[in-house]
C-alpha cells in the first residue's frame, strides 16, 4: 500500500465520518463545522487526483464563503430545544420517502457505472485538473454551458438585490 492509498483511505474515512456527524450532531453549529471537515476531505481527494485548482476553489468557495454564511445564520438564529419547531408526522414521512428516493437514484447510478470500474484515478500525475488545462477546457469545449451558468448566477444576484431593495 503506497502513501497515496493510505491517504485515500484516510480521507475517505474522514469524509464519511464527518458526513455522518453532520447528521448526528445535536447542535447545528457542530453540523456546519463537520460539513466543513467534509469539504476538507473532498479537497484532499481532489489534491490526490492532482486537481489542485478544484481543490482550492472548493475550499475558498464552499468552506470559506458559503459555510461562513451558513454559520452566520445559524449563530444568529439561536437554535435550541425550546425553539425547535414541532414537526408534522406527515412531514417526517414525506422527508423519509424523498430522501429514500434520492438514495435509490444514487445507488443505481453507482451500480450502473460499469465503465468506471477497472479505471483507476490518475493519482498524482494526471494534469487535467491543473488550472491551465481546466481553463482551456472551460473556455473552448464547454464555453456555452459555462457562460449560461454565469448568466444564471447574474440573474440570482440581480434577484437578491431586488429582494433586498424592497
Amino acid at each position: 500500500m503506497g502513501i497515496v492509498q493510505i491517504l485515500f483511505w484516510f480521507l475517505t474515512a474522514l469524509a464519511l465520518v464527518s458526513a455522518l456527524m453532520v447528521l448526528l450532531s445535536k447542535n447545528p453549529v457542530f453540523s456546519v463545522l463537520w460539513l466543513i471537515a467534509v469539504f476538507f476531505a473532498i479537497s484532499g481527494h481532489y489534491i490526490l487526483l492532482n486537481a489542485q485548482f478544484l481543490a482550492i476553489v472548493n475550499m475558498i468557495v464552499y468552506a470559506g464563503a458559503i459555510m461562513v454564511l451558513f454559520l452566520f445564520v445559524i449563530m444568529l438564529m439561536n437554535l435550541n430545544k425550546e425553539t425547535e419547531p414541532q414537526k408534522n408526522i406527515w412531514m417526517k414521512i414525506a422527508g423519509a420517502v424523498s430522501g429514500g428516493c434520492l438514495l435509490m437514484v444514487l445507488i443505481s447510478l453507482v451500480k450502473q457505472a460499469n465503465e468506471m470500474t477497472g479505471k483507476t484515478a490518475l493519482m498524482k500525475d494526471g494534469n487535467i485538473g491543473l488550472i491551465g488545462n481546466l481553463g482551456k477546457a472551460l473556455f473552448s469545449d464547454f464555453v456555452v454551458p459555462f457562460e449560461i451558468s454565469s448568466v444564471l448566477f447574474l440573474s440570482a444576484m440581480v434577484g437578491a438585490v431586488v429582494i433586498g431593495k424592497k
Binding site: V29, L33, I36, Q52, F53, I56, V57, M59, I60, A63, G64, A65, V68, L71, F72, M75, L130, I131
Partner: peptide, 25 residues
C-alpha cells in the same frame, strides 16, 4: 511551489475567518 500558488493563500485566509467566528460564538 504549487500550481495554484496565490489561490492557496486565498483558501487559507478564508479559513482564518473560522478562528474568529468559532471563538466568538
Amino acid at each position: 511551489d504549487i500550481n495554484i500558488g496565490i489561490l492557496y493563500v486565498f483558501g487559507v485566509v478564508s479559513m482564518g475567518v473560522y478562528g474568529v467566528m468559532i471563538g466568538g460564538w
